[in-house]
Write a protein that binds this DNA or RNA. Structure first.
Lengths: 336, 336
DNA sequence: GTGAAAGCGCTAACAT
DNA sequence: ATGTTAGCGCTTTCAC
């Protein structure tokens, strides 16, 4: 009980006007100190809380950000979400989450739930299906409805909006070089995510590095993780491999396991690097050297750009920020 | 551009009243079929979308649920969140997320952001700090402001509200029995989380089952995951072990690795079961048999209860639902 | 069949 | 220093 006391109620109780109460509670100097005090006290005693919906309607600002992510069970996205939440809260914004579950349909619906005034801007990462179909018409609504939008990590090239990405090409390039500096000459690239853009970029970075080093590229593409044990074992038995670069974290962990089961010592015989700095990387045996994408940082940066855009602090031209990857050295690679 | 066309705008364009437009768009039979068609067409062509904030103010319903979780980087909570999102979306609700980061202060602030009318109800899991201090006064606001609240997993006993929990004791008990039915006689319990309540309950369930089966309990408590390899190897070398029950997912994965590295075949020589059905469990080699807490189910159930409560479908008395755990059989346990 | 008017709860320009 | 009024965008009762 006791719920939902309004300005009107307070005004009636004190026999003053609604606007007096409103001004008093907002510390408007137009109202006398005593009246302000009296009104505040009453409001306090009744546990008055201003109705946020009414304020939003009036101010045309919801102080809310809409976030659309393809999946929350991928640790990368939880981490980005973490960064988003921290930064949004810090700047006084709430976040509404929608999951596209990698489906274009759900992604489009999510955008629809956001263009009705319930958020001040959108942060999203493109669904896998959308990346395949390349049908980006639903993203145009952002512009049509004047709703600022920031895309992170998986972005749509043909959509003009602020973007935050990771330099996957560069990350893979550097990781390959890193392995080469450890005296590895036979570096294999395992790619279970070749169907999404980041997987592609990583592969390209690897291939380029291999070429620049005048080595032989060796790419193992798989559709499912469960193929890795068999396929990799086959390769290990047929050719010399002294380093593995994996396009994501699981495949790196699996690679370590497979190598060990085949009698190789990691890192003495084979060095392993994976993409994404997750929990598994930290806890595997041996712990995994990774290319960290700084997921949390991506989240924070996306919020910064979005809010700066909303607050008109950015040039008209879309901003594209590339978050640098870096290598976190652990025990799956030889020490230099 | 083109943004924010309102009923008023449409009305002016067609030279009809606002209410006519509103009724037409809502298919009110008061309005003639032709007018309805004409208005709808115009609305469509202008890309009219009703303002959700205004609708909420009018209807006093936001169709939004506030969710407060202690951490998003714990996979359990991401999974619950996943379940919450799926079910909420299914029932036409949006979700706003706040993270307490295990802090009472942030938890309390999060509740404050929800009692201002921006959500129709709250779903939360109690922050670790709050569990320690046992200061639950901030939870009373839910009742004071008539805001339905559902607590899941970590609940506050002295707060009267709907609750959804997991039976960890029972889960461990059944897992132990399960291993015994596989002819295991020397079942070890690995507990890296003995300091938190769920870790305790699981250990108690294991011990009780072992007693009921007249077996010898063998508990390995560790402070950090990195102790598991060494400690478990020592045990494996000194005594017979034919089954392992691990209090969480990661320790189970490590246990499999350690067993394999010591020359044991999993599951032929040693069966392994872990708590929590996460991604690692699915992808490890061999895949891990787990006690699933049905995190997703917990999330869905919480939403169901909350919305049923909001819609007045529940008895006045708070509801407490215990979600049963169950065993998901994979390849780390012998086939029956 | 259509429109006028009130009101959701709040803010703020404009009286007094 | 306080009150009146209008209005955010929408729904809905009540008149015409």
């Amino acid at each position: 009980m006791g719920s939902k006391i309004t300005l009107k109620d307070l005004a009636r109780i004190l026999n003053v006007s609604i606007s007096t109460v409103s001004k008093a509670l907002n510390d408007n100097p137009e109202i006398s100190i005593e009246t302000r005090a009296k009104i505040k006290e009453l409001a306090e005693s009744y546990g008055y809380v201003p109705n946020n919906i009414a304020q939003s309607l009036k101010s045309k600002s919801t102080k809310t950000i809409g976030v659309i992510i393809p999946a929350i069970l991928l640790e990368f996205f939880s981490k980005v979400l973490y960064g988003i939440e921290i930064e949004a809260t810090k700047r006084g914004y709430k976040i509404i989450i929608c999951l596209s579950n990698e489906l274009q349909q759900k992604e489009s619906e999510s955008i629809d739930t956001f263009i009705n005034g319930s958020v001040d801007g959108i942060i999203l990462s493109v669904a896998e299906e959308t990346q395949k179909t390349k049908n980006h018409t639903h993203f145009l609504k952002s512009e049509k409805y004047n709703l600022p939008m920031v895309m992170f990590d998986r972005v749509a090239k043909d959509i003009s909006c602020d973007k935050v990405t990771v330099d996957d090409f560069e990350g893979a390039y550097e990781a390959t070089q890193f392995l080469h500096e450890l005296d590895s000459k036979n570096i294999i690239f395992i790619n279970p995510i070749s169907n999404i853009s980041v997987g592609e970029s990583r592969e390209e970075g690897y291939v380029k590095a291999i070429e620049d080093l005048s080595l032989e590229p060796l790419v193992l593409k798989v559709e499912h993780y469960n193929q890795i044990e068999k396929e990799l074992t086959k390769i290990l038995n047929n050719q010399k491999v002294d380093a593995i670069l994996a396009a994501d974290e699981y495949s790196a962990i699996l690679a370590i396991n497979v190598a060990r089961l085949n009698g190789y010592n990691v890192p003495d015989d084979i060095s392993v690097i994976g993409f994404t700095n997750g929990l598994m990387a930290e806890h595997s045996i041996p712990s995994l050297t990774v290319v960290s994408q700084h997921a949390e940082n991506i989240g924070r940066t996306s919020v910064e750009i979005l809010l700066d855009r909303i607050q008109g602090k950015l040039p008209e031209q879309p901003v594209h920020k590339v978050v640098k990857t870096n290598i976190i050295e652990r025990n799956s690679t030889k020490k230099r």
